[in-house]
Nucleic acid binder design. Structure first.
Length: 464
RNA sequence: UCCCCGAUAGCUCAGCUGGUAGAGCAAGCGGCUGUUAACCGCUGGGUCGUAGGUUCGAGUCCUACUCGGGGAGCCA
């Protein structure tokens, strides 16, 4: 009896001699001079296709096989043989080719040759059938698996923090409001909309971060991490921003800022090394067709220690760089993209961890340093992508935290449960947020974050 | 949201200082003793993003809008 196997399996030399059933989508058909056809078949199990030899003697050769075009789906039964041709170890000599569905060439938008990513975005339901999006999907899966394995091995618990939150000022920008009210007929009170009639008895939003909730579990169970979707309603139109993206947020009790940096560095290196090891075919493709430096860059990162410099030191490096920046370099203002790029792409040429930022440009929850001017913030910057991780040691002193809240016009009473963590058995702790899509950008060399997530959500775009 | 650039065949693009559209790939047909981004020949295929305007005449110049890209801001 023939065995149903994946194309990944059938491509291995060990499969030679097996009678198999393969099912997948035709990438291309080449008709040979000898009166038979080659079908390139892909089923997503690996980057490469398998070559199927369909002889003219097959009963449906003229009626169906010669009409197969890119996108058609088939079931092939046959024997795996060593391939005499170049470019593959094995091929399948078909005993039968059954067609599940043709793809009309007059209307099927995908062709054998290259398409622009802009065009593919308009057919996001079909782009998984391309080399690039198949590779992205497999690498994305590898990265997510790697993240979970890393944290499990490091003793972190996977925590599900809420998607819907009532904290409307977590300090991370505009939020999507969630309501069950009829927007056509909003109940009005004396002070505008009467949210007591809304589902949760108050205004609620999609989360911009699980950090505050993760802190509550870290301050009781030690090491936690969240991994879920995150929402930002900013009108951001860049190749690095999404309105819906996936973020990993570890939070660990008794971690100071340097433990936090160590964790971040270990995590990134683990992800990079797993991808190189587990997705070699996909990475070769990215290295050849997308960015010829990605593999060398990943190896370089694995072999070097992340440079750690304070914000103040970074400002000195920038001032002495001799570069003419569009934006002035001045202590107290945030680093511009061009500054980050200079540091990570020109000066250090590797990932850089910047820390101890001015208190005025960072949120209330970051721990105040003894100099009273800086806070224990840390950002990991990588070449091309920029900020990939943002984190900090959290302020664990109740009085200082309340003071910082008032400084930023926040009401401590709105955060009563967050402050309780400091009121009862407070503990030093730290954490960070890692943007999964940004990691994937730097791993794959892909230029636009909209091509790294299956269904991008950006301003004016939610078709699929 | 701001600045810059773009939109021409199914796809990727060319089309000069205005004179009524072209290539490659894809598709169809023919050829070629295993091809692998196959190759060679022929054929079909376009209200030049939308709406106005200037002009004898607009793919080409002007205005607005729509969509896309790059940069900036917000950040992951």
């Amino acid at each position: 009896m023939p065995e149903k196997i994946s194309i990944a399996e059938a491509r291995k030399a060990e499969s030679v001699g097996k009678n198999v059933i393969l099912q997948g989508w035709v990438r291309t058909r080449r008709d040979s001079k000898g009166g038979f056809s080659f079908l390139e078949l892909n089923d997503g199990s690996c980057f490469g296709n398998i070559q199927v030899i369909a002889e003219a003697a097959l009963p449906n050769y003229e009626s169906e096989i010669k009409k197969l075009t890119a996108g058609s789906s088939v079931r092939v039964e046959g024997e795996v043989k060593a391939s005499p041709g170049k470019g593959q170890a094995t091929e399948v000599q078909a005993k039968s080719v059954a067609v599940y569905g043709f793809a009309d060439v007059e209307t099927y938008p995908l062709q054998k040759k290259g398409h622009s990513f802009e065009f593919l975005r308009t057919i996001a339901h079909l782009r998984p059938r391309t080399n690039t999006f198949g590779a992205v999907a497999r690498v994305r899966n590898c990265v997510c698996n790697s993240i979970h394995q890393f944290f499990q091995e490091e003793g972190f618990l996977y925590l599900h923090t809420p998607i819907i939150t009532a904290s409307d000022c977590e300090g991370a920008g505009a939020m999507f409001q969630v309501t069950a009210l009829n927007l056509e007929k909003l109940p009005r009170g004396e002070n505008g909309v009467d949210y007591h009639l809304d589902f949760f008895d108050r205004p609620t939003y999609l989360t911009v971060s699980g950090q505050l909730e993760a802190e509550t579990y870290a301050c009781g169970l030690g090491r936690m991490y969240t991994f879920g979707p995150t929402f930002r309603a900013e009108n951001s139109n860049t190749p690095r921003h999404l309105a819906e993206f996936w973020m990993v947020e570890p939070e660990a009790a008794f971690f100071d800022i340097f433990d936090d940096m160590d964790l971040a560095e270990r995590l990134l290196k683990r992800i990079f090394s797993d991808v190189l090891q587990q997705c070699p075919e996909d990475m070769d493709f990215f290295n050849q067709r997308i960015d010829k430096t990605v593999i060398a860059t990943l190896r370089h990162v694995l072999d070097s220690e992340f440079r750690r410099v304070t914000y103040t030191e970074a400002m000195e490096i920038l001032q002495q760089s001799g570069e003419s920046f569009e934006f002035p370099v001045a202590w107290g203002s945030d680093l511009q993209s061009e500054h980050e790029r200079y540091l990570t792409e020109k000066h250090f040429r590797q990932p850089v961890i910047l820390y101890d930022y001015p208190r005025t440009i960072k949120p209330f929850y970051m721990r105040l340093n003894d100099d009273q001017k800086t806070v224990r913030a840390m950002d990991v910057l990588v070449p091309k992508v920029g900020e990939i991780i943002g984190g900090s040691q959290r302020e664990e002193r109740l009085d200082v935290l309340e003071m910082r809240m008032r400084e930023q016009d926040l009401k401590p009473e709105d955060y009563w449960w967050y402050l309780d963590l400091r009121r009862y058995g407070t503990a030093p702790h730290s954490g960070f947020g890692l943007g999964v899509e940004r990691v994937l950008l730097s791993i794959t060399g892909m230029a636009n974050i909209r091509d790294i997530i299956p269904f991008p959500r950006t301003p004016g775009n939610a078709e699929f």
